[in-house]
Each structure stands twice: as structure tokens, then as C-alpha cells.
Design a protein around this nucleic acid. Structure first.
Lengths: 341, 341
DNA sequence: TCCAAAACTTTACGCGCGGAAAATATTTTA
DNA sequence: TAAAATATTTTCCGCGCGTAAAGTTTTGGA
């Protein structure tokens, strides 16, 4: 191991006997240099363990390799999982994902956008907070940076990728109606458009079945869904105010709270004999398979959403042009039958 | 809004009538300039919405304001919560936290370290993977960068902050022994030293009570703890191989899996009459309050661990000196009595 | 009112690299 | 084997800002 203090690209170039511009070319695209040159560089690379200074690189490149990823709430396993999949895709494509969580707070989303902007990202994948979002800030950001939105369709960015709530809700309403009492709908707080769409989809599906929609309304902007499901659930059960004994929850986290409420109130959950209540969710969160009983739900197509949004973003980045129209891509949910409903 | 295209600090300085070096001083420490000057700058700031180019800043500063944060598994709500708290502390202190998740994989931890290094961070807060970690890589990193380790004590970094497993496990073993049948111990996979320490602590505590330790052994390196608790739990229950009907799980995620197993096998969990099994956990994960039944566990002192490790790191960063000895700080757990045990 | 201390301005350099242009070397094609 | 095509080298500039040094102005206290 020759110790020559190879710190800069200049050092590395002279140590490997290649000119600096060629080395620079190599780092930007290894295939852009002759294979014999590539081999010499990679030999030296193994010997000196040099990596270019990220700050200098990014300051000079017309376009960085940074991809900003903003999720509204990282403690939500749905977003943790999405973030994980997105990170992997970006890294595999030679990009550098930078993850931000808005932690449910407007100001944190704004800060994330500002910080991200100063990183001059090649593109961004954003799941907006929703109602708490500063739409102006999001729009301004998306004007400057190629942006694909996912999960929550706030009409920002060059494209949106998500689930078709009308399809997925219809799917489970259909299932619940066919197999027993039609469901009432336990809303999530209207933090984002998904909340409203799922409610609308529920109403539409119920009416198609000739049934009267019954909605358990929830207000506020909190992201503590489980807590909400538990507290509101306990109240409703003890006051006997549940409209029906089949409850479709707007998402799995609400359902997890409601399951806990039912358990604590001594209500047996499931579709078998002796069960007092059926509970279903939406999303197929990573942990819905471990609830008691395991949760019947509709899965979002995680990988399809991630693959599609990442692909779309890279297409935008590589084309360099702003898309003329905003593309919206929705994937179907799939029924996940477990034993809670 | 005068539109003069204020892009660089040069632009901003001349637009606000102040020299660039003074503006630069302001951005590095607003209190280092005269209050009248500060006001003029902040007035211009509100008018032009300028922010310094992060790359240029970090390239030139002797020390960046970046704080690297590496957690082993972000989909684990314990780490998601820790990360959230750490991020907030860093931002409040004027630093810029950059979050990495190793996703349970050795190579990803190594990559995170390398990427982090090229960001020239002022310091790093690392919860190592554990057994899967490349200790050499961690040590080399910690040699160059002020580093505080947390959660998993791998003997790296300038300090370690975590929970006192011997205290916390003794606490719950004590409780379980006093209130019923002494517990057996459902291990977590030996992914890190905590796994081994908790086992040892269990054995020690049981022997102090004059009881024979009974351990349900688990191998492997998987981080899918719930799945493990569920599958192994179902097997043990159906084969009637549970050593005792009181099970202390090495962590809450295992316990959540075991709760599901008990439910699916028709075993009633709790300490009341008619209950067939008691299940307790460790950590007080954010969701342990929503299990069926709610999980009795030992809480880790999240905020104390975060506050202490962040403080220690800032002290290291500001002192500029390597600490001569490695400081270890352990916090006590607290019994969280719910209804599962 | 004067003077030292503090704050500011001017000037200049350097960080490490991307990238353009022109000259030179190497490989490929005919 | 010569000419054309492709790679590489040399030389140079610039990115946006931190920071040092020297000179100038402002401030606050005696």
C-alpha cells in the first residue's frame, strides 16, 4: 500500500498515470473511456481508495445525482416501506437518495423543500402531507425540479403515481356486502385527498349495492391513527353507537386501533360464529398480518407504485424537458383475505 | 418584489448594501455582526429569499454542519422514533441531520459509512447493525469522525448511550416472578449485543430468584422479528413445547408476533382468570399499546437516550478533541404495566 | 472630545472539481 | 498504409463561498 496521500482527483490522476479530465470522465460514466484506460483507473482505485469530493462534484455538475425523497410521516410503516424501496431503486440506478420526513408538520415539509432545493437535486419524489401542505411551496419547488408525487394526489409535480381508491374501496365493500352485513365506514382524519376519495368511493360503492352509507366521522389533522381508532372505537362500542357490526376502516392503522378497542371491550372480531364484529382495513400495512385477528384488507401495490414513480422520474430527469401534461397513474388494490372480516 | 436575480452571495451582498465577507459572517453566526447590520441583512433576506449554496459552503468550511445518523432498520418503529427525535434535536441546534438506514444489511451499513464520510460530517450518531456490522469499517470511520454510538454497544465511537439491559430485564423478571409463574425467555435473533445481554440478564435475574432459566432459542440474523415470534410461537404452542406459560420476549416485536400466535391458537393472553398465558415484552415500542391485549413491557427512555447522545456528540464536536476514554452511559428502563402480563 | 476597540470593507487566494477548446495520440476503417 | 474517427492530454476558466490580511469606518467609554 503506497502511502502517497491521494486526496484530490489531481493526486489520484497523477498517481494512476492518467490525466485528470479523463479520470473525471470516468467517474461521470465509466463507459465513456477506453476499456484499457478503465482498467488502469480501476486498478489504481483499488490501490488508493479514492472517492471524489461530493461537494466539489455537486457544485460543478450542471446536474447532481441527488434524488430528494419526502414522506409525510416516517413512523408510519407504509411510508417506511415505500422509502426503503425507493432508496434501493435510486441507489441501483446510480443516484443518491436523500430522505426527509415531514413528521406530519407543515413547517417541516416546507423546511425539507428548502433544504432539498439547496441540494440542487436532479429530481424529487414527494408524498405530500396533504391538507397541511403549503401548496404554493410545493408548486414552486416542482416548477424548478422534476418532481413525481406519490400516495397523495395534490395536483403538484409532473406526474402522480398511486392507488386507485375507487377500485380498491369498491373491491372490499363488494366483498363485505356479499359475505354479510354491509359495512359502515370509519374515516381517517382528512389529512389528505386519499381520506376524501376513500369516503367518496365508499359512498359510491354502497349506493351501487342499494345500501345506505353510514360514516363514522373523524376530524382533525392528527397522524396518530391508531390512537384515534382505539379511543373513538371504545367510545362508540360502549355507547352502542356503531352503525353496523361490520366496519371498513379508511386505513389499516385506524383498523389496528379499532381492533384494540374491540378487544378491550370484549368484542370478538372475525367472520366466524360467535364473532360480534367484522373489521377491515385498507393498505395492507407491513404489520397487518400480525394483528389479532389478522386483518382483512386491500393491499396497495407497493412495488408497482415505487417502480412506476421512480421510472417516471428518471425519464423526466433524462429527457430534461418539462412534461407538457401531468400524467396520473393509478394501480389497482388487491383483496387480502385474513380473518378479521 | 424587486427581481434582480439574487443567486450568489455576491449578488445578495451588493443588493443589500453590505460586503460579502460580512454577509458570510452573518450566515455562519448571526450574532457575530452588529445588530444594525443584522437587521439590514434580515430585511434584505425577507426581500430576496436567498440561501447560500450548500455545496459551496460545505466545500470551503473546515467543518460542515452535517450530522450523520445511521440506524440499522428504519422500518422498526423504535428506530423510526429515535431518528425522529434525533433529527429534531440536530435541527434545533443548527445542524443538518442526514438519515441512513442499513435495512438490516451489512453492505448497506458500509455504503452508508462511505457516503457519510464523503459528506465530511461534523459528527455521527450511529446505531450499529450489530453482528452483521463491519467493525473495522466502523472503527475506521469513528477514528476520523466524532461518533456517538447508541442502542447497540459495539465498542466503537467516542461514547455509547443506551439502556441498562441488566436493570430493565431484572425489573420485569422481578415483576413476573412476584405475580405468577416465573417466565421463560423468548430470545430475539442474536443480531446485536443487546440480544446477548438481555439473555444473560434474564438468566442472572432468574437465578437470583432461585428459579431455573428456560430459554427459547432463536438463531439467524433476520430482523423480521414479528414473523419469527408468530411462526415459532405457533409451532411451540401446537407442539406444547412452551417451557412455561409466562413468556418474557426479548423485545416487543417478538412479543407482537407471539401475541398473534397465541390468538391464532386460541390461547387467551393476560393475567386475569381464564387466561392461558402471560406475555411480556421489552422496549415499549410505539405500538405496544395497541396490541391485543395491550402489552406489558419495559420502556426504554427514548428522550433521555436521544438527549444524552446528541449532547455528548455536540460536546465532542465543539471541543474538537478526541476523548481519551470511551464514555458509556446507560439509562434505566421503566415498567409499563398493561394487561398482557 | 478624543481614542482605542470593535466592526466593517477591500482585496485576494484557494477549495476540488466540471467542462470547453485545441493539440496530440491511438485505434479503426477502407 | 494512409486517412478518418475516436480517445486522451494540456491548458484554462469558473463554480460560490470561506477566510485571511490590511485598511477604513463606526462605536462606546473616559
Amino acid at each position: 500500500m503506497s502511502e502517497q496521500k491521494v486526496q484530490t482527483m489531481e493526486d489520484f490522476a497523477s498517481a494512476s498515470g492518467i490525466s485528470r479530465p479523463t479520470v473525471s470522465k470516468y467517474f461521470n460514466d465509466p463507459d465513456s473511456v477506453r476499456s484499457s484506460t478503465r482498467e488502469r483507473i480501476e486498478l489504481a482505485l483499488a490501490k488508493f481508495n479514492y472517492t471524489p469530493n461530493l461537494f466539489a462534484v455537486n457544485q460543478n455538475r450542471r446536474q447532481t445525482k441527488n434524488i430528494g425523497v419526502i414522506v409525510p410521516y416516517l413512523a408510519d410503516p407504509f411510508f417506511a416501506e415505500m422509502a426503503r424501496l425507493i432508496e434501493r431503486r435510486c441507489i441501483d440506478a446510480g443516484y443518491w437518495p436523500i430522505l426527509f420526513s415531514s413528521h406530519g408538520q407543515r413547517q417541516m415539509e416546507i423546511n425539507a423543500l428548502e433544504t432539498l432545493r439547496s441540494l440542487k437535486p436532479a429530481g424529487a419524489l414527494i408524498a405530500p402531507l396533504g391538507r397541511a401542505s403549503d401548496l404554493e411551496a410545493l408548486r414552486k419547488f416542482a416548477d424548478d425540479v422534476p418532481t413525481v408525487a406519490f400516495d397523495s394526489n395534490q395536483d403538484i409535480g409532473d406526474a402522480f403515481v398511486g392507488s386507485d381508491n375507487f377500485q380498491s374501496i369498491a373491491l372490499i365493500v363488494d366483498y363485505l356486502c356479499r359475505t354479510g352485513e354491509p359495512p359502515c365506514f370509519f374515516e381517517m382524519p382528512p389529512v389528505n385527498p386519499n381520506a376524501l376519495k376513500r369516503r367518496a368511493a365508499y359512498i359510491e360503492a354502497m349506493e351501487r349495492f342499494g345500501q345506505t352509507p353510514e360514516i363514522i366521522r373523524v376530524g382533525g389533522q392528527s397522524w396518530e391513527f391508531e390512537k384515534m381508532g382505539l379511543e373513538e372505537g371504545k367510545r362508540l362500542i360502549s355507547e352502542r353507537k356503531l352503525p353496523t357490526n361490520t366496519v371498513l376502516c379508511s386505513n389499516d392503522r385506524i383498523a389496528i386501533g379499532l381492533l384494540a378497542a374491540a378487544y378491550q371491550m370484549g368484542l370478538r372480531v372475525g367472520r366466524g360464529q360467535g364473532c360480534a364484529i367484522r373489521i377491515a382495513g385498507h393498505d395492507d400495512h407491513p404489520w397487518s398480518q400480525f394483528t389479532c385477528p389478522p386483518l382483512t384488507t386491500v393491499s396497495q401495490n407497493y412495488t408497482a407504485i415505487v417502480d412506476s414513480s421512480v421510472e417516471k422520474l428518471f425519464a423526466l430527469v433524462n429527457s430534461g424537458t418539462k412534461s407538457e401534461s401531468r400524467e396520473v397513474k393509478l394501480f389497482d388494490g388487491q383483496l387480502v383475505l385474513r380473518s378479521s372480516a
